[in-house]
Design a protein around this nucleic acid. Structure first.
Length: 802
DNA sequence: AGCACGCCGACT
DNA sequence: GTCGGCGTGCTC
């Protein structure tokens, strides 16, 4: 007897364990650990992962596995183990962890069908629904207002049967190819026989005389300037034939990558790379922190480390932050390793992601470059894991399972006995502190390549501008500098920090701010469609003409959106050709690359954008970077506000003067004295680190303490307060005396989507029982969560405190 | 989750 | 007595 232990796709606490199923004899040998199967579960069928195969079970009434959904396991033994660890570490469900490791399309799709076993004996209404068919979908039954009770009765009578169908969503893209179906001389003869009217058919056949091979239908149509009907006619005559070939969707189809060779390493690169090479050769699990300033050549270190790994016949995972950085970064990897690279990032369609994943799964590639989830690439012989810009918050998943890719990387590094390289110009304080304590191996690259200096940074005090009578959002200094660059045909990057700062609408008469009725947040004005939108729920209303509070017509929008900056800029600088990049202009697929291309080709001379332009962009003609308002970020209710500001300013500054032309950076601010602005302008990470560490020590924040954030939400404010208070009490009672429990406190945004939100935070150094205690608390509220619309989320080492 | 079962009030 | 509502509990 063979028994499969299966984790089923039923995401609840009660089913968060494996279920035993009998492997039917015909499937023995076919079913392996890590495959998806469909199994009977109660009255229906669900998808599940086979997590183990054993010889017997303690249950006696085992049911059989219905179907195997994969030819080869989608999860390796290592990933099965890793998923278990991940779920336990983040207090998530096993099924959630496993699904997080796989592309979306491998999630199951469920369908129900009703089969009529007899017609005559069915009631009239059902006969009508079936309308002569033997099978209809359950969806159709519901849509056409089928009577559920009646159906139920007929089911009991054995007149109808319900089938539960479990399907995988993955599809394989096929492309039609056309090729000759006869010998060439016969084709030639056929051309002679064609009627005079058949011009296009002649053209197509002549094409094959010249190129006697299979050709993609689309290409053929383009080459002969014709349509499918011509091809169809020729296929009918038996002269051509159509073949469907499986192909990978190729997101980089229209791009050519010139292969590059390893560049000679500078002295500091050489010093940094030696220990990494050594760890690769010796197969040592070791974490490196590569602290290299912008332009110090970190990427070349990555590339040549990977080179070593490939020579050993091993594989490499490279994580990069979300989209902003990928086009240029991906290019460098493709140029070096060509077809050995798979790319996984959020801008790909689900089908494209699946195809890239398939290449990894089938071992057709050796290198993955991707966003957070690429850390789960199903390689089996990893030689190195690299996390670029390791301080980036996008490495933390903000939904279940709330994992940090860095921690997963370390875990896989131990399993594969390979180095993990964390790279950054502004490492996360936690990481740098660990490196200083020799938990990580610190590698420093303080100099830029070719002895370039970092561009000088000038801080402009906007309060002084205001006093001098300048009410616009551009200081005289910045405006002058922009004009100067444009005159020299150089380019400018303008950065607007919008986080926590958007265009809200206020009445000048009574000071009333228009807020969302469901969330505790001001609505944002969107000029393009004249709407006020809530960024936390989908509420939107047209912009009003008069104040709803006092009926005054003095209602105006405030704040600085990119749209507004763009307009203001066009007014003062008529020559400006602006590319605006923000969530609005980059929403469409491929828009991101298109806009950057426009700037690259110098069609535009100013790139204006939000967060997303701060990272990784490298344009040789950019000599000025302007930061319009950095203050909003500094004032966020987040203990990392200073650190984030420092990171951002450093990154933005790195966009200027990366090549021959010297660069310059201008930062506009209302808080000129703030140490993170001042030290960023001096590129003094070390000093910033010391000063910030001091702050963290005083206020008991990471890296001196660990944090756990518990969020509670419910439509009733009293209920939320009461639950959060109780949780705080329980934590206080059961955690050690070294732990501090803050709260209950209202979340920075107290209401979202009509739900009130409270939180409590644990600050601790060492709480071995923490997971268990929290798990018990969650169990205690299990009923409330199930029935009464209560939600409690637990975030270990949170990045998002909202 | 999703479904059956079972208990209770309302009604042919 | 039966229909239909919802609360409860189980799924190898």
């Amino acid at each position: 007897m063979q028994v499969a232990k299966v984790v089923v796709d039923v995401p609840t606490n009660q089913t968060n364990h494996s279920f035993d199923y009998l492997v039917p004899p015909e499937m023995v040998g076919l079913i392996k650990k890590g495959m998806r199967v469909s199994v009977p579960f109660g009255p229906r069928k669900v998808m599940g992962f086979v997590v183990n195969l054993v010889a017997e079970s303690e249950f006696d009434k085992l049911r059989k596995i219905s179907q195997v959904m994969d030819m080869t396991p989608v999860l390796t033994d290592e990933l099965l183990e890793l998923g278990k660890w991940l779920a336990e570490e983040t207090i998530s469900l096993y099924i959630q962890a496993y699904q997080a490791m796989l592309p979306q399309v491998l999630k199951a799709k469920y369908k129900k069908e009703i089969e009529a076993l007899t017609f005559e004996e069915l009631p009239k209404s059902l006969q009508k629904l079936f309308d002569g068919r033997t099978v209809i979908s359950f969806d159709e039954f519901l849509q056409r207002n089928g009577n559920y009770r009646e159906l139920h009765k007929e089911m009991k009578n054995g007149h109808v049967q319900i089938h539960y169908i479990v399907q995988s969503k993955e599809t394989i893209k096929k492309v039609s190819f056309i090729e000759p179906n006869k010998e060439l001389y016969l084709i030639e003869e056929a051309i002679q026989d064609l009627s005079k009217n058949a011009q296009k058919q002649r053209l197509v056949l002549e094409y094959f005389l010249k190129n006697n091979e299979s050709v993609e239908q689309g290409d053929l149509l383009r080459a002969c300037e014709t349509t499918t009907s011509t091809i169809q006619a020729l296929i009918k005559k038996g002269l051509l034939k159509k073949i469907e070939k499986k192909v990978y969707r190729n997101p980089y189809q229209n791009r050519e990558f010139k292969r590059t060779k390893p560049l000679p390493l500078s002295d500091q690169q050489q010093v940094a790379i030696e220990p990494i090479w050594k760890a690769i050769e010796k197969e040592q699990s070791e974490v490196f922190l590569l602290h290299g300033v912008t332009g110090s050549g970190k990427t070349e270190v990555y590339l040549q480390s990977i080179e070593k790994v490939l020579q050993k016949g091993q594989e490499a995972i490279v994580l990069v932050p979300e989209i902003a950085l990928t086009p240029q970064m991906v290019q460098r990897f493709k140029e070096r390793f060509g077809g050995e690279v798979a790319v996984l990032h959020s801008a790909l369609s689900p089908g494209e992601k699946f195809d890239e994943w398939t290449k990894i799964h089938k071992r057709e590639v050796k290198v993955v470059v991707g966003a957070r989830s690429a850390i789960f690439a199903p390689f089996e012989n990893i030689g190195i894991i690299i996390i670029d810009e390791e301080h980036e918050t996008s490495y933390k998943q903000e939904e279940q399972p709330r994992y940090h890719a860095r921690e997963v990387a370390k875990q896989r590094g131990i399993y594969h006995q390979c180095p993990v390289v964390l790279g950054s110009a502004t490492p996360l304080l936690e990481s740098y502190a660990r490196a200083k304590k020799n938990v990580y191996h610190l590698l420093e690259m303080p100099d830029r390549m070719n002895n370039q200096v970092m561009p000088p940074v000038e801080i402009v005090d906007m309060r002084e501008e205001l006093h001098a009578g300048n009410r616009t959002m551009f200081s005289k200094r910045l405006l002058g500098a922009i004009e100067e660059r444009l005159a020299k045909k150089e380019q400018v990057v303008l950065f607007l920090n919008r986080r926590g700062y958007s265009t809200f609408v206020m009445c000048r008469e009574c000071g009333d701010v228009v807020k969302c009725p469901h969330c505790d947040i001001a609505l944002t004005y969107h000029k393009s469609n004249h709407l006020l939108k809530c960024h936390y729920c989908d509420y939107q209303i047209p912009m009003m003409q008069e104040c709803e509070n006092c009926q005054s017509d003095q209602i105006r929008y405030f704040g600085t959106g990119t749209q507004k900056v763009e307009e203001a800029l066009m007014q003062v600088i008529p020559d400006a050709k602006i590319v605006r990049m923000d969530v609005d202009t980059t929403r469409r697929k491929g828009a991101h690359e298109r806009l950057l291309q426009k700037f690259q080709s110098k069609e535009a001379n100013i790139l204006l954008g939000t967060q997303m332009i701060a990272k990784g962009l490298d344009f040789e003609n950019v000599t000025l970077v302007g930061v319009l308002a950095v203050d909003a970020m500094l004032n966020l209710p987040d203990f990392r506000a200073s650190e984030k500001t420092f990171q951002l300013l450093t990154q933005v500054s790195g966009r200027a003067g990366r090549h021959q032309l010297p660069g310059e950076v201008i930062i506009q601010t209302y808080s000129k004295e703030h140490y993170s602005i001042e030290l960023a302008s001096q590129y003094n990470y070390t000093q910033f680190f010391l000063q910030e560490m001091n702050m963290r020590k005083n206020f008991h924040y990471p890296p001196y303490y660990f944090l756990t954030l518990i969020n509670v939400s419910h439509p009733n404010q009293l209920k939320v307060m009461e639950v959060t208070k109780m949780i705080s009490k329980l934590l206080y009672k059961h955690l050690t005396n070294d732990a501090t429990i803050l709260g209950p406190t209202p979340s920075p945004i107290i209401r979202i989507n009509n739900r009130y939100r409270y939180q409590c935070m644990i600050k601790y150094k060492n709480e071995p029982m923490q997971h268990e205690i929290i798990r018990k608390i969650l169990d205690y509220y299990y009923e409330d969560i199930q029935k009464n619309d209560l939600t409690i989320t637990v975030d270990f080492e949170p990045y998002q405190l909202m």
